[in-house]
């Protein structure tokens, strides 16, 4: 468990204090995948680094696994960091060491693990990330996705309870991103690891996160379960992120020639696969025109979101029937 208690961070720039992160209060539960999304400069990188104290809070406290770690130094700080793995956008591997030596590195600097244990642990980790065949290669000989897998293996070496991901997929192509995210999800399920990731892509949040916090100009402007935030974004910044993920920026005008009222229907779980609309049409005789739609998954939950124009005398009955089937409806202003 990680807790931010009114934690904030300011930097001194030319003698003046510039806030990077306004006071944050939030709890990240053990075993969850928690996403922090924001544009560059929104403070998400600072927020992530407060957890392992690569950045110290200017005010407020940080708790990790129930302990106030805010002022940890020396051995206490090293123990804290030993329990928190971290992966990076640019991987940050040691170019002068082989894949196996990179993975062994955190164990070697701890100094209390025997060579035999290190070798066994490295083999086990390389198998977990699917890089056994590349153990003797140097990072420069690997692809981006492989480098990030080395990063993940290294981050897991000291059996941490928390994994911090700093834009871990931002330098990867879409296919590699998908496989790295799958690996992270797998690790979360199998090892029960708490994962905190920062990103500027809502799609990354949608695929792996349980909950999300949206950061804007150093402030948490929205937070909640990913499905809620994704299907019903409240803050303008969140809406923009969701729109980017749906590739539906600037859709408004093209509905102008369509008759009827516009509605956005959001399905989740079971409702996604039941024939709600055709039942409604049969029972009430309303007509609908499908304008845009998407059926996908939020982590493991299927969801759908459709934008419809609806027409008919029994429209209100139709809307009630849709609601009763467990589908959310919002009317879209035109």
């Amino acid at each position: 468990m990680i807790r931010f208690a009114a934690a904030s961070k300011s930097y001194r720039v030319d003698g003046a204090l510039v806030p990077a992160l306004e006071p944050v209060d939030l709890v990240i539960e053990r075993g969850e995948v928690f996403g922090i999304i924001g544009h560059s400069g929104a403070g998400k990188s600072t927020m992530l680094r407060l957890i392992n104290l690569l950045e110290r809070p200017t005010a407020g406290r940080i708790f990790v696994e129930g302990n106030d770690v805010t002022d940890a130094t020396g051995g206490e700080l090293r123990r804290l960091r030993g329990g928190i793995g971290m992966i990076f956008q640019h991987f940050n591997l040691l170019s002068s060491r082989t894949v196996a030596d990179n993975v062994a590195f955190p164990l070697r600097i701890q100094g209390n693990v025997s060579d035999g244990e290190i070798t066994a642990r490295v083999d086990e980790l390389l198998e977990l990330v699917g890089l056994t065949a590349h153990a003797r290669k140097y990072p420069a000989q690997l692809s981006g996705g492989q480098k990030q897998r080395v990063g993940i293996a290294r981050a897991l070496a000291s059996r941490p309870s928390i994994l911090l991901c700093d834009e871990a997929t931002s330098a990867l192509d879409p296919q590699t991103t998908a496989s790295v995210l799958e690996l992270l999800g797998d690790i979360n399920r199998r090892l029960g690891l708490t994962i905190v990731l920062i990103t500027h892509e809502m799609d990354v949040i949608r695929r792996v996160c349980d909950r999300v916090a949206v950061l804007d100009a150093g402030r948490v402007v929205e937070m909640g379960a990913v499905a809620d935030v994704f299907l019903h974004p409240q803050h303008p910044t969140t809406r923009r992120f969701v729109a980017e993920a749906d590739h539906r920026e600037g859709h408004g005008p093209e509905f102008s020639g369509v008759a009827g009222r516009l509605f956005r229907l959001s399905f989740r779980g079971e409702a996604t696969y039941s024939p709600v609309l055709s039942n409604v049409v049969r029972d009430t005789g309303v007509e609908y025109n499908l304008l845009s739609g998407r059926v996908d998954r939020i982590k493991d939950t299927p969801y759908g979101q459709l934008t419809l124009a609806m027409n008919g005398e029994r429209l209100d009955d139709a809307l009630a029937q849709i609601r009763n089937a467990g589908v959310d409806i919002e009317e879209v202003a035109r």
Partner: peptide
């Protein structure tokens, strides 16, 4: 030497002398 590599070593709990001897000098 890439600052990110130094940061990664700090995040693993390396001491400054470990960073010098095992990261900075070899890199």
């Amino acid at each position: 030497v890439d600052r990110g590599v130094i940061e990664a070593s700090q995040a693993m709990g390396a001491t400054t002398s470990q960073i010098v001897t095992r990261v900075l000098l070899p890199e």
